[in-house]
């Protein structure tokens, strides 16, 4: 019996883009394009099984071996530091992790900086490298609201086009790190499905370099 390669895809636009990339290099699974509520899709001929999961959960599925490989944003990898191999920058889902503040904000280094974010580890590491004391405010959504209402001085969040920031009279103060989607692999799967994972990685890598040239 053929051994399936289990792939965790992040639900949403990024996942669809990434699936299109897998499909274009021979890992197609036509049933995934059907409009239904199924969560798992298989193509026995190709030996591939896809499943959609919440983007922030991809690393958990891969680290714990429920998926052999997956695609996760660099933001999630930096925040949760899962014990996985990071095999490839898929050069898609490009954005940046940035510090943003109300337009005209001036930082007073004599005061503790109040930082609102979903990404508390990234923010903590960033400010600790600078030796800056912060008051971390962990939020789960609508981060942009925090400085507007005076809950925080700045926010640490993902910025794609900057439209949401502009519409709320916020601006990027510093870029922490560029973000893109990464192909990750479970460390044990990499040993036992080595050829399958290497082949997949090489094909995507080749596709990316063709697109670049």
């Amino acid at each position: 019996m053929k051994e399936f390669l289990n792939i965790a895809l992040p639900k949403g636009r990024l996942g669809e883009k990434v699936y299109a990339m897998f499909e274009s290099v021979g890992y197609d699974c036509p049933s995934i394009r059907e409009n239904n509520r199924k969560l798992i899709f298989e193509n026995e001929t190709v030996g591939v099984r896809y499943f959609w999961v919440k983007p922030s959960d991809v690393t958990i599925y891969v680290e714990r071996g429920a998926a052999d490989v997956g695609v996760a944003g660099k933001d999630i990898l930096l925040e949760y530091t899962p014990d996985v191999y990071e095999l490839l920058d898929m050069k898609t889902g490009n954005c940046r992790m940035a510090v943003a503040a109300p337009v005209g904000f001036r930082d007073d280094p004599a005061r503790t900086l109040r930082v609102a974010t979903k990404f508390s580890n990234i923010a903590r590491n960033y400010y600790s490298e600078q030796g800056r004391e912060i008051d971390m405010i962990k939020l789960n959504g609508s981060i942009e609201l925090a400085p507007i209402l005076g809950l925080s001085d700045v926010i640490v969040d993902i910025v794609e086009t900057g439209t949401t920031l502009r519409e709320n009279r916020l601006e990027v103060v510093e870029t922490i790190i560029p973000i893109s989607a990464r192909l990750i692999a479970n460390k044990a799967s990499y040993q036992f499905k080595n050829e399958q994972i290497r082949r997949l990685t090489e094909r995507i890598e080749q596709k990316l370099s063709e697109a670049e040239s």
């Binding site: 680290e63 714990r64 071996g65 429920a66 014990d83 479970n186 460390k187 044990a188 040993q191």
Partner: peptide
């Protein structure tokens, strides 16, 4: 060391 069937080392 890795053993098949165990997802971590």
């Amino acid at each position: 060391g890795y053993a098949e069937g165990v997802p971590t080392r």
